Amino acid sequence: MKIVGALLSAAVVTMALAVPACAAQSSLTVNVFQGMQNLPLFAAQQKGFFAERGLSVNLEITPSSDEQRAGLADGKYQIIHCGIDNGVAMADVAKVDVAAVIGGDNGFNRLIVQPDIHAISDLRGKTVIVDAPDTAYAFQLYEMLKRGGLDKGEYTIKSVGATAKRLVDIQQNKDDKASMLNPPFAFTAQNDGLKDQGSAVSTIGPYQATAGIVLRSWAKDHPDILIKYLEAYIEGLRYVLDPKNKDEATKMLADGLKLPPDVAAATYAVATDPAEGLAKDGRFDGPGFDNVLRLRADWTGHAPRPAAAYFDLSYYEKALAGLG
């Protein structure tokens, strides 16, 4: 009886310890745009990299950059992944104290046009579509059109929302003649007969696009959670970039983005391109960010602050150190 009693007591203690361990799990709401850049997040969720660090991550897809920025500012989201210029806009225009904490990619954007557009000059007097007209990839579009001989004002700008929405719009509305799209949306558009007029980076040079962005106050209050999140993200990124995981990672793209196998395979090939794919370990592209700030200055007429004012890589560096 003493042995039974001891076992029962041990069971009670074990159950009691399990309650705070469960309760200690940290829940995060992470807001993202739909796209291939979410592949590391898919892996971190499906392979348990978040869970093993005590993180419960809810991924939400944003309809637009305006909604995403507002959600971060209001505390609805703890972390967002988006074009870093959106973070610059939050800091300089909305006066929200944010910081980019990890890089990601160059955006993979391509100028996609209707079949009747044969050159950039054909867009004179036509409608082009963007997410928000005053941030990020809209500036890429304006710059590509300028270098093709069109000044802003020689075309009409229509705000539609995130890339997935722009794809649907340009497929269904033939009067909307051009947009910046990235894979898999650019591939889907071309399969439907739209035309590719070239990549943004081939025209404007290196570009720091997707970045993880947080409120500085939240990061200061939750450094351990942020570091664990970044560890899991980097581990997910390493997993999907490992060639031996190609088939599984391609399936993650197909399932996560609802893609046919051929589009998923083509998208994975872009994601893993050694030169221009997802940045190794999510590294931050300094020269690419300088280009982001230059474009913002050119197209808003307002000089940004020094680049270092917009990011804090200390959490990222600790995450890398923790991974070994």
Rank of each mutant, 00 (worst) to 15 (best):
D224C: 02
P63M: 04
E317T: 11
D74T: 08
Q140H: 15
A319R: 08
A136T: 09
D122M: 14
A309D: 15
G48D: 10
L241T: 15
A303I: 01
L59I: 09
F311M: 13
L230C: 11
P260N: 08
I225N: 00
L55A: 02
W299A: 02
I227C: 00
K318G: 04
A89G: 00
E52L: 00
V96N: 02
M36S: 13
K146T: 01
H222P: 01
Q190F: 10
A100I: 02
A186L: 14
G153V: 07
N109E: 09
K251N: 02
V32D: 02
D97A: 06
A319C: 10
S65P: 05
V57W: 02
D273E: 03
T29E: 04
Y137R: 03
N245I: 00
Y315S: 09
G324Y: 06
T163Y: 07
F50N: 04
Y316Q: 05
P40S: 12
A321C: 07
A271V: 11
F187K: 15
I80N: 13
A275F: 01
V113D: 09
V201T: 11
K146L: 01
A91N: 15
L293F: 15
K76D: 06
A303E: 00
A275G: 03
L141D: 15
P206V: 06
Q46F: 04
D85W: 04
M1E: 11
G301M: 11
N58T: 08
H302E: 13
G125P: 07
K244Q: 06
T62M: 05
V160Y: 10
I79R: 15
W299D: 03
M1D: 15
Q208L: 10
Q208A: 13
A271C: 15
D247A: 14
P223E: 05
D224R: 04
E154V: 03
K228H: 01
A89L: 05
P206M: 05
I112G: 12
K318P: 09
I157R: 04
T29F: 02
F50Y: 13
G103D: 08
P63Y: 05
L7W: 14
I157Q: 01
Q208P: 10
D116K: 00
E235Y: 03
P63N: 06
C82P: 00
S27H: 14
S159E: 15
D290E: 15
Q45F: 00
A254P: 03
D74P: 02
N106R: 08
A132P: 01
Y137T: 09
M15P: 02
K246M: 10
M15F: 11
G212S: 15
D85M: 06
N106C: 01
Y233G: 08
G5D: 14
L259I: 09
T14M: 11
K251F: 00
